Simulated assay, not measured.
Amino acid sequence: MASTSFSPYKTASGFLLPSIHSAPPFFTQQPNLSTQITHTAHWTRLILSYARHRQLFLLRVEDAETSGSNWDEILKNERINRKLLPTHLSFILADMVSKNLAIYEPVRQTRSVLLYWRTPEEWAEVLHGWADSTGQLNTILTFYDIVEPPVPSPLVGLPLTMLRKAIAILAKTSRAQTIAVADGEGVRFLSGNTTR
């Protein structure tokens, strides 16, 4: 009988799981603090790289409790009959929030996070670059125009919380200004000056 090898494994979505994902103890919260710190760092890297690969922004504790979520490929390993327990995922998410790699979304709860696989500053640069490359500087755009554009962009599905943070960063460098529009919030991107 062939044993499960500790080697990288490619998922159905094309994501390459690291070899540690084949180790049963990886799915268990460890009593030894230094071991748990190491495992949490591995889980954090895995979650953020998978989120970037799949363009996922939110991770909820419920994703470890139910089958069929976008996160099944990494929160479960059926080859070794293991899955991440909700309490362990909650611990990992709290650690990510404490390190500013995620924020609780919505606020005032601890079961759902917005992942920072790109920081708000990085999203600000992506956002401004998109506006510039699509010829939309000095054009008033609704938030909907940005996150649901007619042509696919890296901003598709970007949560409004992250969009607002990115716009606020651009506004500080005079590269964006928010504008009230009839059907909600809007923004005008400016060529601006990146120096103050």
Rank of each mutant, 00 (worst) to 15 (best):
V156L: 10
N100M: 06
S153H: 04
V156W: 05
I169Q: 02
I80G: 01
L160M: 03
R79D: 13
E122N: 07
D63M: 08
D145A: 05
I47F: 00
T139V: 15
P8N: 11
T194W: 05
G192Y: 05
T44P: 05
T4Q: 11
F27E: 01
L17A: 00
T38D: 12
A180S: 11
I103R: 11
H21F: 01
I179M: 09
L127C: 06
S98Q: 14
A166N: 04
T35L: 10
G184W: 03
A166I: 06
Y50C: 07
S7C: 10
W123F: 08
P150K: 08
K10F: 08
F6C: 12
E78D: 14
V156T: 12
M96G: 00
P150A: 06
H53R: 09
S153R: 03
R82W: 04
A180V: 07
H88F: 15
W130M: 04
F26G: 01
I169T: 08
Y116M: 07
Y104G: 06
I179V: 15
L85K: 13
A180C: 07
Y50I: 06
G129C: 05
R108A: 15
L141S: 14
R54N: 13
R79Q: 13
S191C: 08
V61N: 07
L17M: 04
K10E: 15
V147G: 00
H42K: 07
T142E: 12
Q55W: 09
M162L: 15
A94G: 14
R111K: 14
T178Q: 13
E78V: 12
F15K: 00
R60H: 09
G68C: 11
F27T: 01
S174C: 11
T139G: 02
F26C: 03
P86Q: 07
A166W: 03
R79V: 14
L163P: 01
L155D: 00
P154D: 12
L89R: 09
I20A: 06
I92E: 02
T194H: 09
Y144L: 08
L48Q: 03
L137K: 00
T87N: 14
L163Q: 01
V151S: 09
L115N: 01
E78W: 09
P152W: 09
Q55H: 14
T178G: 10
P31R: 05
E185H: 12
V156I: 12
P120A: 05
Y116P: 10
A131I: 03
L115W: 02
P106M: 06
H88M: 10
E185R: 11
A171M: 06
A168S: 14
S153A: 12
R108K: 15
R45A: 11
A124Y: 00
L16A: 09
